[in-house]
Design a protein around this nucleic acid. Sequence first.
DNA 1: AATTGGCACAACCGCCTAAAG
DNA 2: TCTTTAGGCGGTTGTGCCAAT
Length: 435
Amino acid sequence: MGRHSCCYKQKLRKGLWSPEEDEKLLRYITQYGHGCWSSVPKLAGLQRCGKSCRLRWINYLRPDLKRGTFSQEEEDLIIELHAVLGNRWSQIAAQLPGRTDNEIKNLWNSCLKKKLRQKGIDPVTHKPLSEVEHGGDDMNTTPKSQERAAFSGSSNGLSQTQQATNSENNVFEHCSSSNANTSSKISNLMSSGLDKDCFQNGLLCSTSSSHPSDDLVGHFPLQPLSDYASSSRLAAAISNHSPWFGQSGKSFGMNTEFGCSTIPAIIPHSTISFHHDPVGYRPPMTVPNDNYCFKSLPVDDSRYWEVNAPSNSGAGNAELLSSSSYFENSVFSWGLENCNAMGKEAEMNNSPGGHVGEMKLPDYFHNPLLIGAASQHQVPQSLYNEIKSDPHFDPNYSSSAAWLQNQQDQGLLPSSDISSGAKNIQRLTALLGHI
DNA sequence: AATTGGCACAACCGCCTAAAG
DNA sequence: TCTTTAGGCGGTTGTGCCAAT
């Protein structure tokens, strides 16, 4: 279904979005959330199909987008992840908060592929070009339909041929004997608490019956790792990643719309625990309110992120915390019910005093992430002007923590909120600062 | 100054899957 | 069980910018 049926019913606009359209969509979603995308254009007064609105929001308008060029670390991580996940851009994007799958895909096609080739690495197999040429079994020639079938039937997103190549060639050529260091890293990864089933159902699932399924290290495409940055980040990404693969091979519980997709779909006892270095994870950039305080608890060499569910919500369960509902019901409050009041209040006045978890529209505009977008003309001019004209606006803010702190300094936030919100964010920022 | 090619980015297209009727 | 509808994803194309010629 390329174009939805709604697109045929009436003449809908195509092509680039105008600033007016952006503003309409932004204002609507800010106030009401998107809900059913197919109804968004009508309710927002747009001559677009819902699919187009969704894409525009995800790739362009949503406030937690990180703009600007990719850092070297981001590029390295993308390459690492691509070696494992193949062209599963949405899942790669899930490990790079603030980046969209579209953005990463474009980067890959326009830049990273070329860089790898220049290094003598085949961007498809992540093996040395000479090896690929000799092999003759060129991955580039894998029929699309075959790859799609492989995707749906396999768990790691690579074609079956690709899986076999990675597991049988990379593993036993590069891992078991020559790359003991990397091997030990993966072994450590395994021995330090990861559920083996996650691997068997997830990324490291073997497709070859000739290899014992518990030889998990053996099914990891290790060869490229030496070229890239620390493999611990990849391990972290995988450890965060693999539990959310279902049997169909598709991930679930990953909400890339908010760039927070590493939050597990099922979180027993309302606790999010990220084993190992959570370097691939950043908490939602939305400020947690009092009920959702992110805590970092050092346990051995691992770090754990914990979310305290609100005791009075009656929803401190897995259902609430499942992906989108998690945000729609709680943390991502600006996107839904609170936004309604938020927008109205913003229209009436800019009075301070809103809670951290209930940002008013002007406060929302102080969000450095949105401002980042605005500064690059990613936000409609009228909104940008609104931001710039605000006396509290400071384009130099570089973190949500700084932003929060300043909100308190300005008297725009009560100290109770800053203590639970900003401090946790500051802790997160410090812990994740090395990214 | 005009043309051309490369590049980055935004958006569309088509496929797959799941849910609902 | 079949059909319809919608969401999501990856591939591809269109467009504008910029540097080189």
